[in-house]
Design a protein around this nucleic acid. Structure first.
Lengths: 210, 210, 210, 210
DNA sequence: TATGAATGAGACTTCATTCAT
DNA sequence: AATGAATGAAGTCTCATTCAT
């Protein structure tokens, strides 16, 4: 497919080549998923021959996993850590949600590809899927801690349920935006999401008020 | 065992063959997505040769679209329509949510495959994706009508936002269950989801109470 | 490919069905040759299912042969037999050539498909090819007789060479028109062809004139 | 026999592989035409797996086009350019015709395959067909120039008609030989062809002589 | 007189991967 | 650090043909 007619040259530069391959892969895999991502397509997009991809990555699975890892790091950098204690719980929760929403708009690859991998069930689970699920489990715990801090009187299983609900809602809203298009105001939806959860938590934390 | 009338026909039963093909496809496509579904795998699972599949369906795209359509109908039948006016808005909303949750547990193929298709972006959009998005748009409007009926004082755009939020949350919770496993109590999560939305709607509908 | 969705009915009418199949086949085979003519394509063009084609014709080979035979008869009818003794040899020869040219423009299928078959060399020779070559051999002899009649003093092998030359030239000019398009004036070219042959024959018949 | 240096390499010799593929293809396509040429057959004949063929050629169309191009070059080399000014126009024309005839006997692939492609009309025109027709158009103009040089008083459209007639006659005679077999003396027929055209041109060039 | 359904073989093409250089 | 060339397996789809009805 690449054929013998291609005659590109480049100074050997391992790091840059690796980046180019990952850039190409994230774009394709984010649109087509695991099976839809062919080495030939990556090769065509990054300009390096397929055999060079195998010099940098053991196999396709390794490549996809590397993409997941790198796009996670990219996304992490896009999440600005909020000022530690900025006012009321509602304000803090809303700000965090807006933060996450903005980061997902800026760096959607991680979640996009991750969700595609997560939904698939193949005989031998891709390493990228495992990585994604682990990262997301870590995130779950981090969020649960924050919730527990903000609402100390909540029982552990309630915190867990609310956290699950928070993450699932974020996923759903993200998918909605991916499917519907850029016109969706993800920040506003995430703020609404945060407010609803906050109110529920507040009510659950202080049942006496009723 | 099946008796002597089973005369090894093997010949000519179009309707049954079509069903067998669709059964096999829904199982594979629901796990592996569009690209991961190979005609050979479908053939192996349903027992008919690949060429017979092409007698019943124009091409792979047509097959996947047919699967989406049939699994949607299956799912629709699984959603029991609730008693028309059963008590308070909260009760009605909660019951509906539980209903949908139960239907998704019983017939998850439609949403599962649909979401996989929805997340993919391929050069030529599969017809199944289009069908899924259309069906879901219809559902969105149906839900919006219900919300508007239950909370007549809500502005139209608020109803729309809440509906979007409701659907997205449902998607996210469904994905959570698909990824995490059968141990997730989808009905409980959907009831929580319904309650949060209801409370938000109630508050927005009567801002004076503040 | 035709699929179960096709629901056409027709009063059973063997003769008409046969004609429709042949009509469709001549069109496709005349454009695509033996290998390029698929039963499915014929079926699509004539509206009858593939299995019906096999009711009328033993196999593909039989179908193509039937097409050759029928298109030959059609062509024969298109060649108006010229008035027996119309003037000088040049006039007669020119008129005959113009006749043939006109018939080839009106009914090109026979020669078109025939030449395609003739050029191909397949392990088991199609019956249609054999038929074509036989018909053309007969034509060769008929023409040779005419030449011998018009120029009685020519040696037999000279007559044969001239006849070969006449037929080959006709083939070449026909191909030229098929390739170049309808703008080519085949009649004029055939008349030129006839004149050149006539002059050559006349000179050979009377070498004394030199 | 070939000596011990033949170390069963089997590895990496792009140029030679390409030649082997083209050799195999020209043989098959020259006998069976476009549709009759299967990649599997080429693979079997050249010893390389089908996938290797696709490394050297984008697709079947590309392969056939390459065959046309190469066989044209081969044929061009087989046409010995005649001594510039060898005697009378008749002698020169006859010599050129004999030359071409000999080249067509020695390297018939170009015209053989080209004519097969030219006669076919498929929805998407093969590139090889385009190439063939272009080459042949160039040849037409080259021949027209020669005719115009030899008979300067001929009108341009007459030169064009005679050239068309010359080429078409050559095609027809070539086809005759291909169909009839090696016993046909193509050189003699081409010389006859040349003489007839020469005489016609001479007469047209000097109408006063009449 | 037809045809719906089926089928094994084979079409073109792409796949992930390897390996000598 | 890279790549040209190769390859077996698998991909989607079409082929000519059959057969029970």
């Amino acid at each position: 497919m690449t054929g013998p007619q291609t005659t590109r040259r480049k100074r050997a530069n391992g790091v840059e080549s690796r980046q180019r391959i990952l850039d190409a892969t994230v774009e394709i895999a984010g649109e087509r998923g695991y099976d839809g991502t062919s080495i030939a397509a990556v090769s065509a997009k990054c300009g390096l021959p397929a055999s060079s991809i195998y010099w940098h990555f053991k196999d396709k699975d390794d490549l996809i996993a590397a993409v997941i890892e790198r796009s996670f790091e990219t996304w992490l950098r896009a999440v600005e850590l909020p000022g530690e204690d900025a006012g009321t719980p509602l304000e803090r929760v809303t700000m965090m949600a807006a933060n996450v929403a903005r980061s997902l708009v800026a760096a959607p690859d991680f979640l996009r590809l991750g969700l595609m991998l997560a939904l698939e069930r193949r005989p031998t689970e891709p390493r990228g899927r495992t990585v994604f699920l682990q990262v997301r489990e870590t995130a779950h715990q981090r969020i649960a801690e924050i919730v527990a801090t903000l609402f100390p009187s909540l029982a552990e299983d309630v915190v867990d349920t609310l956290t699950t609900y928070a993450v699932a809602g974020a996923d759903g809203l993200f998918v909605h935006r991916e499917v519907t298009g850029d016109s969706v105001d993800l920040v506003a939806l995430f703020e609404l999401h945060a407010r609803l959860i906050h109110d529920a938590a507040a009510r659950m934390a202080a049942p006496a008020e009723r």
